[in-house]
Design a protein around this nucleic acid. Sequence first.
DNA 1: GATGCCGGGGA
DNA 2: TCCCCGGCATC
Length: 468
Amino acid sequence: MASVLSRRLGKRSLLGTRVSAPSALADGVLVATQIPGMHISFPCPEEPGAGGTKVLVTYNGQECAGLVEQHNPLSDKVKVLLPEQGLQACWRAQDVRLAALQPPILPAAGGPGPAETLQRSVSSNIDVPKRKADATVEMDEMVAAMVLTSLSCSPVVQSPPAGESASRAACDPWKESGDVSDSGSSTTSGHWSGGSDISTPSPPHPAGSPKYSSEALSSPQADDGFETDSDPFLLDEPAPRKRKNSVKVMYKCLWPSCGKVLRSIVGIKRHVKTQHLGDSADSDQRKREEDFYYTEVQVKEEPAPEAAAATSPTSASAPIIIQQALAKPEALLVEQPALEPALASSALSQSAPSSFWHIQADHAYQALPSIQIPVSPHIFTSISWATATSTLPSLSPVRSRSLSFSEPQPPTPMLKSHLIVASPPRVSIGTRKVRGEAKKCRKVYGIEHRDQWCTACRWKKACQRFLD
DNA sequence: GATGCCGGGGA
DNA sequence: TCCCCGGCATC
């Protein structure tokens, strides 16, 4: 997992950015109705040694200071780190000028592709956490975890390689204005272009390198137009099943006035390569560039008529995607412990069945009176046991835990306990509750003062007075 | 063996 | 629903 994440960091670093349509970019201004976006295009094979140079770039219509990280003389692209925006992206070298120079004239439209102009901005609709530049990687990993979470929760098998999907879904999913001639099946969410493996902070993957071919291209390369999912995180998933709020990943060509949407990453790559880049076999550059002419589109799949969701431009808005991306507690726990409380809450609220929460609420309710209130044990225990026995038989793990957690819990610990419950079954499932450390009524009062025991103890039930 | 408590049953 | 207890798991 970690390795998967790390080698996708660059793409993920494009969180909160989007690709703006060429038509909008032609004017150098984004359409008003369009979410401010980012336009990136070409991979940036790094040129070591260029890093650290302070430059100015036009970003979101504004001058932004950045630091050159790499310069690719081949494609004449410069990878610029924007500390203020907490992201990095590739710019055409001519669009990047030294801090002392005047801004260049924005290139005119009509270039060979969307890569012709570069303009990016952070989406104003997504709460993109602004971070320090040195926290970019952390953010990337966080996003990756989130997206992986989403993908692994999605029953639809349209899962790209983990890292790729991570980075793409992390990007601003707003609809493009120009090249979106959607086939109706793409509610262009999770738009993403460029920023593929090659522009990652991790070592570049030359087109022919084993790493590039095996890692970036291996999994979805069935080349059958149907992206089978080789994502290791999904291998254990049961057969694809429709689930609420699941996201179906499509791939949309970003070539101007194309907008072809395919279900397969292989297919879209092939489309880009053959239709737009030309299928010359010897062009390593083009092999790399093909990644930058398509974007991942996450189509929200709902029980409601799918066509409606697909045609509605707002049906798969970014916030929804992000929320879904959070819906894997295990992944969150593993990948981003620091984010656990906040993410987990939304994750569970999104993913957990409502009945589950209802049950939890019941236990929270029943647990409260049990704490340090031995005054009327009869009343309490009546409620408690009635609730427990009526609602819990189908959730034995919950039962065990919730009966133990009778003391009032602060919100976060409660969430953690929920996460534990939501996590895969434990060994103790189905077994009886482990004896707690706390002394029970029998120990405290002694068998000779049995009348002072709590009712549960008297009934040889789980002690409700001295909870574990 | 003591303890904790689940499951079951009687009133 | 209250109450009790057999029996099992754990300490």
